[in-house]
Design a protein around this nucleic acid. Sequence first.
DNA 1: CATCCTTACGCAAACGTTTGCGTGTGGAAA
DNA 2: TTTCCACACGCAAACGTTTGCGTAAGGATG
Lengths: 347, 347
Amino acid sequence: MKQKVTLKQIAKELDVSISTVSKALKDSKEISLDTRQKVKAFARLYNYKPNNIALSLKNRKTKTIGVIIPEIVHHFFTTVIGGVEKVANEKGYNVIICSSNNSFDKEVINLEMLASGSADGFILSVAKETQLKKDYHHIEETMSQGMPVVLFDRIIDEIVCDKVIIDDAKGAQTATNHLLSIGCKKIAILTTVDYISVGKLRTNGYLRALRAYDIFEKEEFILKIEDVDNCESEISDFLRDKDIDAIFAVNELFAVTAVKVLDIQGKRVPHDVSVIGFTDGILSKHFIPSLTTVSQHGEDMGIRAAKLLIDKLEGDDVAIEEYRTVIIDTSLIQRKSTKKMGSNPNN
Amino acid sequence: MKQKVTLKQIAKELDVSISTVSKALKDSKEISLDTRQKVKAFARLYNYKPNNIALSLKNRKTKTIGVIIPEIVHHFFTTVIGGVEKVANEKGYNVIICSSNNSFDKEVINLEMLASGSADGFILSVAKETQLKKDYHHIEETMSQGMPVVLFDRIIDEIVCDKVIIDDAKGAQTATNHLLSIGCKKIAILTTVDYISVGKLRTNGYLRALRAYDIFEKEEFILKIEDVDNCESEISDFLRDKDIDAIFAVNELFAVTAVKVLDIQGKRVPHDVSVIGFTDGILSKHFIPSLTTVSQHGEDMGIRAAKLLIDKLEGDDVAIEEYRTVIIDTSLIQRKSTKKMGSNPNN
DNA sequence: CATCCTTACGCAAACGTTTGCGTGTGGAAA
DNA sequence: TTTCCACACGCAAACGTTTGCGTAAGGATG
């Protein structure tokens, strides 16, 4: 088993100094053409690859980006990662991904681990627990050590840094508006508990749309779901015998679960009830009926986040204290879970 | 902006040597209790964290595991990653994830990048292109440099290393058997082109089950889909006016698409046609009807793969030349896309 | 008072790079 | 023959750790 070959070994074999080898490989004209060729041939033969670790230590940068997300098994986050990877690889950066599993402690551990030498900067979306605890010392500490952080999706207002978000409220408003525009008047919302920032924002957008239409918001049309894993029974209870003609769900799971429950309760989508979800994932696309939904353009978010981070990483220190918030446009993807515009509902 | 504090800085502040600081932090009894306490207090105050990069260089190991998968936006792979992360974190390892995007070149680049200092070992599932090209030099080279590799799911028989797989053929056979046992006789299969190892194996399992039932396999019941992204039209053409009573699909997407197409063509699932998929993903669980499917237990695969790798990484060199192949049991998850056992089909 | 042991610390090498600068060799010019 | 300059290369420091070993100081012992 041949070990990894180092400059030192090449130097010994060729009976020159380490620095000569290093310079030869870099085509330094300080070294004679002859030696250069010999060294390069040898290096190729032994498949020499510079040791990243040593380079990182020397250069004081790792050329890797740390990404920390709440859940790895989640379509939206993986699309974001896809975007990050795309630009990172283009620019010669590595990507390390860790999931916090929505645990504050794991988020802290991961961040500290990566911060102590493994990554130059971070792209992160905070864990539920972190949002609940409102303890951001780990993020602030990382930043104060000079490592840039880009927050995305689930951001924290109190932290001053680059951010990439969608306008959750606006997206929700657009969705609700669409429901209103196709004639729905009794629109329920399936949302999360308030401490999830995006859930709250989407709820606000929903309310705003309603008010703009002079529709009085009803407490009993709002369901805040705590236990995501068991949302079906909650939704079922909520929907039973409720007189509604549309549902806006703040995520994909709530949307399909709603359709399922409606089906069981004998209501047809979209004939009796129109449903709009949030996030354009696998489910929305392939469900029957396919779901009208608000697309967050996850890959774009990842791309923008990575660009922001790399700009900061490579930027002249001039703009380093300048923070930007990028807002990605959402778009409404109309599919089959909502009635067509102009169709005349006679229920 | 305070910079990251190093041993050297602490040493200077406290007017002792670097080695004293290092030893003090490790509670070496070579250092007086007094000094130890002073150093530790100071380190805590300045939030000293040893630099991982320097440690990696010194110890010649990074304590990180590289995971390379064909697609990051893929439920099965993310569950595997979840499993890997679980045991890796338990054992103090970091996890770096890269996706090859099913490209041979990207797989090579990622592997080489990680191999040159960023990771101690690899868990990987090869890209489609790699399977097609049958070029495995990058993997063999990595191994010959002393870095252990664990292959999972899409493995390569020619490479001798640890492997974690499911018995694809057996899983497919079980699924097909189930269809046969509920009375289906005209069973079609939706599969991939042959060079995808798992697709081929699953097809074999399907054929085996058929033969065991003395059912003659029909060429026209087998659809090998090339362009996954546009499978709907292929499936639609294939299914049109075909007299079948069951479909076995080698993945989730094919399965739901089949249900969709059947629906359009006026056949009901499971009443007219029973459908079984492969992989227990989001879609199978939430689709209407929910899909009977073969679960691959992705998280278990990840757990086993990580254990194999870490064993090799930390193992006494005794067993290092011994390679194991772990076969994870699949299980058939019965849901609503197949008729119940014993129901009397009269079609 | 000389010797010895313990205590408490520092030195230096090593991990694999990069790079500014110093230096020996050779040939050409004076 | 002397002087000078290019050329081609090596030295050493630096990045931040760890750790075996050497050693100064001080007290205890003979």
